[in-house]
Design a protein around this nucleic acid. Structure first.
Lengths: 296, 296
DNA sequence: AATTATCATGAGATTAATTCAAGATGTTTT
DNA sequence: AAAACATCTTGAATTAATCTCATGATAATT
């Protein structure tokens, strides 16, 4: 294993220039350096690479073999290198997003649409895998960004705040609870609560509202789709707790009412968790900025 | 253009070892050297190549890209390098032979048959191109060996003597000249001379025998094939001058007589002309040795 | 024979790569 | 929680490889 790309580049230059001195210029070396380099190769392989006593300098079979190799290999290297540099400049890259909050689809989709317009070469993917733990996957490089509402102090992961939200109870506007200005945990004791089909641990209504008060709703129904949940609520089959960004649009167009949880409301902040070294990459910054504007 | 094969080799090792220290061993470096090397790459491309805070060390997208490149390119390089080394050791190579003397086919064929048995990987070719000048072509690398009977003092070409030969007149054994013990130029004045279809300049009968004496034969007929020439001679359609190695076998089996030209015979030596640097290559030496034995 | 064009060579200079020794950092063990 | 461990990083010193400079050699050209 002696060959280096430098040698291949030299051979291409020599073949093109048909003369060592000019070839040397082409690869930004002195004629002497090239001569030494070739000699080293000839030494190693034990065969001359070109005939010197011929006007348009001529490669020997061995020389031709290396030239051929160079012609095959170098363009590939060059292409890869260009790609890598673009990668670094951030023109291209990978953005595999994991979302912990189910409702985030609502704002994520328009954001991604906008994102793709500026960064068509970045490979975007959303992984709503319910099963896997997103943060370790982020640390391991399996995914590139996690949307999360509870930031941790990690030295390899940076949590970028995106925006605040308020989780509100949503119900039919004819619902009795619509008469209250805010909702207490006990109010849900006789209600059917409709949630996304995930563990309770990952639902703020339970962890931050009902469980602290020791309250269990009458029943829990689950639905995958936000639109379905809203339909069920509208048709009086139950109530749900959803973040305000979901409700903003939905309540305007239908007969739904929303009320804050507790007197002061249940507020939270959404974060984008990314690996620190990548947190400054242009397309990453741009995604975060877009998310902050939520596609408006 | 920063990348060198060294980098590709390192990346492959790192991926395989999943740990810098072990990877370093594999490429015969210290762990520190590898670290520096990787850092240089990361620096150049402006992107990390692998995640350090993960137990089985994991490549980033950029790292994977280089790894992929390495997997594509390195085997090709390795193959080419092996081939080149074999080339140098002479196990493989090219032997394009140009023959100046037409009759040489007679002994060359059996020699080449023997040669191919020992050097199956050497690409053999015979070029009896009547048109081109073989020595310049040899100097230019278009061909690799010239069979010639007149050596020159050239510093890039070596003339290796193969064997001596005698050019003799061949005729039907009933021919009147068969009564003479040797042939004088004037003897051919009334004869039809059968030759190979080449310029007179390249025929010894003319340059060394008839022209010095100012003699022109009655007629000249030409034939491409030695066998045909001998048939014509046997059927009394003329006489021919051929080297003894052709005649040895032929005269034994048919009613042909041969006589020396001039009292002392017209002798010559056959040479193999090769480029000096290649004159020591194993398969070249072997070819020359085989030619000297003329396949016996 | 002198001139020109080209490649080769050796010595010294320069640059790049590698090692060494110590330092960080994160993980596992006690 | 501290200690021990595994692993990568860093900076300085060393070594090795590569390059340049100046000149030599050779062959082709004038």
């Amino acid at each position: 294993m002696f060959l280096e790309l430098r040698h291949l580049r030299s051979l291409i230059a020599i073949d093109a220039a048909t003369n060592l001195a000019r070839a040397a210029e082409q690869v930004h070396l002195t004629q002497s350096a090239l001569s030494h380099q070739i000699k080293a190769m000839e030494n190693y392989y034990g065969a001359p690479l070109f005939l010197r006593n011929t006007k348009p300098l001529r490669l020997t079979p061995a020389g031709l073999k290396i030239l051929e190799l160079a012609r095959r290999v170098l363009p590939e290297i060059e292409r890869a290198e260009k790609d890598l540099l673009r990668h670094a400049k951030g023109e291209t890259g990978r953005l595999h997003i994991a979302i912990e909050c189910h409702a985030c689809f609502e704002w994520l989709m328009p954001v991604l649409d906008a994102f793709r317009k500026t960064w068509p070469e970045v490979e975007v993917d959303i992984r709503a895998g319910v099963s896997f733990d997103p943060l370790p996957a982020l640390q391991k490089g399996e995914i590139d960004l996690v949307i999360s509402s509870d930031p941790l102090e990690l030295n390899d992961i940076s949590f970028e705040p995106l925006f605040e939200y308020e989780a509100r109870l949503v119900m039919a506007h004819t619902h009795s609870l619509a008469n209250k200005s805010f909702i207490d945990p006990v109010d849900l004791k006789g209600e059917t609560l409709i949630t996304y089909p995930v563990r309770r641990q990952r639902l703020d209504v339970f962890t931050r509202f009902l469980q602290p008060a020791g309250i269990e709703p009458l029943a829990v129904r689950q639905s995958e789709l936000t639109a379905v949940i809203l339909l069920l609520v509208a048709s009086q089959r139950g109530v749900a707790v959803l973040p305000d960004w979901v409700l903003l649009e939905a309540t305007q167009k239908s007969s739904l009412a929303t009320r804050p949880l507790t007197q002061h409301g249940m507020h939270g902040t959404l974060f984008a968790a990314v690996r620190r070294p990548e947190s400054t990459m242009p397309f990453m910054r741009d995604f975060i900025d877009l998310a902050r504007e939520r596609g408006n």
